[in-house]
Design a protein around this nucleic acid. Structure first.
Lengths: 218, 218
DNA sequence: CGGTTTCGATACCGATCGGTATCGAGTGAA
DNA sequence: TTCACTCGATACCGATCGGTATCGAAACCG
């Protein structure tokens, strides 16, 4: 006996092959420049297989982005690991975030292109907003936890700090894509350190406190 | 006499109408989703007029982005105006930058989409890199000038601070596009303040510098 | 084994794309 | 007034798009 050899791949296998192929081609060409034929060809299948497993192009794109966003959120919280020293924690987190910018460069491109779609499509926008809010909440929690661990008074609210970290992650990815030399390896960590270090004049989020008297010039 | 009435618009006029129309349609639909017919129709012309004034679609796109980048660079340096008080300067700069994020929201979308194209097209990439380097230099100079004016020792090198400001501008634009409520109006200014305020433990970018002894300054 | 269902390949559709060839009206100079 | 030239409208091209209809083989099931 040759065993229970499948003559036809299971539906789940086919679907996964399509998703993986689409991910590959999206990373190579971008979402807008990729046709269903490109995806099917990459998967060694035809358009028929795609339409048998997905409602259409939009459905396929949405599925892929959802999956990647889910996978990515889990890693995002792991960045703010529990380290004993605050300086080490910030520089380490910064290093990991910058490393993520490089290793997930294609992902950043995809996300920003998807963001562009979301800006013009309410349905896509609401989906992205929901995912993004969840990611923001996760990062916020991780930051708050790390701050409590090191017993530091953050000059910014954890939720605001989370927004800044996410913004920097995307923004620095853009700058690094344009000119890698413009974004030195320690920059993210340096900025992080400044953002978590309490100032002599108190919280920046509480502007009622007077400015530093030493530098006051009229 | 009815005067020297032009029976046919000048070439420059037609070219400008096309550029303006393309800018409008790009802002509405994005670059990738806009066809030459869309542009021509918006301008009240036809494809023939476009091909008579531009080498092709890519040439038109490049022309528009170049023009906008040039216009934008001039405004970027004006953000760091000369204000007497440092706190006021940072919050004012932050407010202007955030206002720019809102008012130029469509521009940010266009720039990020163009960035996505540049990531996959070496020619576009080099052009964008050159423009971006110039913008970075301009912001760097403006920051250095403002720092000197206020007599403050920046914890980060002006050129690095410029990169962070540019990154935050794009990154916060993304977050604000997803969820405006996630980016409070004072956030940019608050972050800026933290980034220009010397820390008690010394400069993060230049650890050799000793801790700041009070307000003493060279 | 046989009838039914599933699934993906194939062929095909209308629409639209960027780009080109052509042509006629508008234009400036002789 | 004439003539060479400019410039944009028009018609058209091949290619390609997302999507659909169909059909045969494999798989499932009683």
């Amino acid at each position: 006996m040759t065993g229970p050899q499948r003559r036809r791949p299971s539906r789940a296998e086919t679907r996964r092959r399509i998703i993986d192929a689409a991910t590959t081609v999206f990373a190579r060409q971008g979402i807008a420049a990729t046709s269903l034929n490109d995806i099917a060809a990459e998967a060694g299948l035809t358009k028929g297989a795609v339409y048998s497993n997905f409602a259409g192009r939009d459905d396929l794109v949405l599925t892929i982005m959802e999956e990647h966003m889910f996978e990515r959120m889990e890693r995002a919280t792991a960045v703010f690991a529990e380290l004993a020293d605050l300086d080490e924690a910030t520089s380490e987190a910064g290093a990991r975030l910058l490393a993520g910018i490089d290793s997930d460069a294609t992902w950043h491109r995809l996300l920003l292109e998807y963001w562009g779609l979301a800006m013009r499509n309410p349905t896509v926008h609401s989906g992205l907003a929901e995912r993004r809010a969840r990611l923001r909440a996760a990062v916020t929690a991780a930051i708050g936890k790390a701050a409590a661990l090191h017993g530091v008074d953050l000059p910014l609210a954890p939720e605001h700090l989370a927004v800044v970290v996410l913004a920097l992650s995307n923004g620095l990815a853009v700058e690094r894509g344009v000119d890698p030399a413009a974004v030195p390896p320690t920059l993210f960590g340096d900025v992080l350190k400044l953002l978590v270090t309490p100032t002599a004049s108190g919280s920046a989020a509480d502007p009622r406190r007077p400015a530093r008297p030493g530098t006051a010039r009229t």
